[in-house]
């Protein structure tokens, strides 16, 4: 009796489903536990991918809590593409809806940081913006449009996600504050780095993606009267948050 791939797949991600008939041990006896090798391979390889993909969530939860949770996630959300480097985009929402972890409301945003770090790692290369662009007169400068580097990522949270992330990855770091925080991920060379964004900077960055510089500074000042453009710009330039404006980003 032919075994369809639908039958083979159904039992793969369901440990309670019977082994499909029509599979044997090469000598005519039912395949039995031999089928479990494929079951184990699929689940174990996806669990391993999640451990690599969400290192900070795993640090915060502890491997003893994170690892047993993963088979539930991977069975509910198998990959949708062979590009395993992008696996796990459903994980933040999975955490938000997972009642037993509801008391750790910030975990989903930490998962978003892990995802964004990985996206940044694989993003296209780009020549950084030449800072001399800021030497032009104010009236032309304010109409200038800047382009974020492909590896630049911005995340805003209701939680002190920068402090939580730093504390998870460096136990000697100060205890998290209680404020909401926004973070910036940049990749000056090959390793993405996480930075705390000062007040108003996230508004500025989200605006500058499709607004000229002058309007973006105004938007940031409206959102955060304490917005310090000079300090924000220094942070962004030093960490190559902007790409050279004439370079093609499509690569």
């Amino acid at each position: 009796m032919p075994v369809t791939q639908a039958q083979f797949r159904t039992a793969l991600l369901n440990a309670d489903a019977p082994v499909p008939a029509g599979l044997d041990d090469g000598g005519g006896a039912p395949a039995g536990a031999r089928y479990d090798v494929y079951r184990n391979n699929v689940t174990a390889s996806l669990v391993d991918a999640m451990k690599l993909a969400f290192p900070t969530v795993r640090l915060l939860l502890g491997a003893q809590n994170f690892d047993p949770l993963m088979p539930h996630f991977v069975r509910a959300h198998p990959p949708r593409s062979p590009l395993m480097m992008y696996y796990g985009v459903e994980f933040p929402a999975f955490l938000e809806n997972f009642q037993p972890l509801a008391h750790l409301g910030y975990l989903a945003d930490i998962a978003r940081i892990d995802l964004a770090m990985r996206t940044s790692y694989h993003a296209a290369d780009a020549r950084p913006l030449d800072p001399s662009i800021f030497q032009q007169p104010p009236e032309t400068l304010e109409d200038t449009r800047l382009r974020l580097a492909p590896a630049t990522q911005i995340l805003r949270s209701h939680w002190p996600i920068f402090d939580l992330w730093r504390r998870a990855t460096d136990p000697t770091a100060p205890k998290p504050r209680t404020a909401a925080q926004a973070v910036l991920i940049t990749r000056p060379a090959f390793d993405p780095a996480l930075h705390l964004l000062p007040e108003g900077a996230a508004t500025f960055l989200l605006s500058v993606r499709d607004q000229p510089l002058g309007a973006s500074v105004e938007a940031a000042q409206v959102a955060a009267p304490g917005f310090d453009f000079g300090a924000t710009l220094a942070l962004l330039l030093e960490n190559h948050a902007f790409a050279h404006s004439t370079e093609d980003s499509s690569k």
Binding site: L83, M85, H122, A123, D125, A151, D191
Partner: peptide, 10 residues
């Protein structure tokens, strides 16, 4: 598949 990202170290 490990080299199907857009850039970076790989």
């Amino acid at each position: 598949e490990n080299y199907m990202g857009d850039g970076g170290r790989p």
